[in-house]
Structure formats: C-alpha cells, structure tokens
Design a protein around this nucleic acid. Sequence first.
DNA 1: TCCATATTTCAACGATTATCGAAATGTTGG
DNA 2: CCAACATTTCGATAATCGTTGAAATATGGA
Lengths: 114, 114
Amino acid sequence: MEKKIAVTALAALAQDNRLDVFRLLVQAGPEGMPAGAVAEALDLAPNTLTFHFDRLRTAGLVTARREGRSIIYAAQFAQMNALVAFLTENCCGGVLCAPAASCKPARKRAKEPA
Amino acid sequence: MEKKIAVTALAALAQDNRLDVFRLLVQAGPEGMPAGAVAEALDLAPNTLTFHFDRLRTAGLVTARREGRSIIYAAQFAQMNALVAFLTENCCGGVLCAPAASCKPARKRAKEPA
DNA sequence: TCCATATTTCAACGATTATCGAAATGTTGG
DNA sequence: CCAACATTTCGATAATCGTTGAAATATGGA
C-alpha cells in the first residue's frame, strides 16, 4: 500500500461518524447495506452521509453499487487488511515479528445447492 | 480501546509528517530517539515537530522522556496493537475470524551477562 | 555565571473539514 | 408522464489543522 493511500484511509477512519459508518458496514458483512439504512441506524442527514461515504470510497474502504432505488455500500475488507498490514509492516526494526491481522468474511457460496 | 481514543489515534496517524514520524519511531524500536534526530531525519522544523509529537502523545502512540538536553520519543507498541485490534474486532459480523496483529519489540535483556 | 544547545510556547495565517439547507438527479410504480 | 422515494450536488458557514516566525524555557559545560 502506498503511503498516500494509507494517509487517506486513516483520515477516512479518523472521524466519529465515519468510524461508526465503517464499523457498521464491517458488521453488515460483504453484502453491505443501503445508504438509507445506514442513515437511519446512525441518525445522520443523507447529504452528510454522502459526504462521508465519499471519503471512505476515495480511500478504497467501501464500494457502492446501485440496487433499485437504493445504493448499497459495502466495506472492502481487503483494503482494511492492507491498511493494518501497512501500519505493522515496519514494526520491530523492519523484522516481521507478527503476522498482520486479516479479516476474510465468510465466503458466499457460489450457488446454493438444490 | 474506547472509540474516542481510537479516533484520536487514527487522526494522529492520518497526516503525512506524523505518519513518517511514527513509523520512524517504530523502526527505532522501544528505546526511541531524540526529537532533534527525528527533526533532522525528516527535515522538519523543531516547533512543527513538537506540534506533531503532541498529537501522537495525546493519542498514546508515543511517550517522551528527558535525557540530558534531549527529549527522547518512543513509539508505544501496545497502543498501536490496541488500535489495530479495535479496527478488526468487529470484523465478520462480530465473530472473531482472525487474530489481531501484534508487535512485541524484542525484549531488552534485563542485564547483559558479564 | 554566561553561553550554547535542545526543545517548547505563543500568536498568526491560509487551508481543510464537517455540517446544514435547498435544489437537483435518478428510479420505480400508477 | 407524474408523483413519491432515495440519494447526490451545490453553496455557505463555523471549527479545526499544519506551518511559520519570534520568543521563552530548560539543561550542561566553560
């Protein structure tokens, strides 16, 4: 991960409401949840929420997809893991002294067997 | 770790120069290094550096101790690990799916055997 | 004590940030 | 097409941030 992206990602997480948004999406899992549901859960104005989603998206921490009238936001676990790895990679004088944490959400079955 | 501290720590790391400072201290190890050495290594004005050190210290990410005329700053690995743990703890719907990364700097020998 | 070194404090400044209100955009169903 | 819904865009505002220059504070040595 480039340092510039790391700073952007850290800045994206370094705000009360955005940290709440991100953690909510992390808990929601890879399927994500609609912007409106996030707005209701955290009691945030929709335009304010858009502002925060933009920050998270620019940092690569969430993705957005349209589904009907809603826009579904989902956490990007890979990016979160990359950030954690970046923070710990130079730990202990450059010697890797512990594996970086990694979070792989339960794999969605490709096809539900009949 | 409390959310408030997590936000403070993330904000402390979410800035170019401070991220450089912190990583330099992480590489320097638990002994730390004098403010002046950091200033020279990163080409930062001493008063600017004091500002950044304050942020990192408030976040619990570094500690300071006086040694002669110098003030030695050192990374707080425990706090860094706590932050990483906080970021990953609610991963995967609350189910802990991976151990948080942890960085324990090599233990300093209590006494060099003669 | 006086001087040089190392770092911090203070006041100021332009830049960025988070939030708000109002209006615009895209989507679905009647 | 029109109305209701879901979300975004735009303009404005107060608050915070990062840097600078000048002055202050501590420490150690001559």
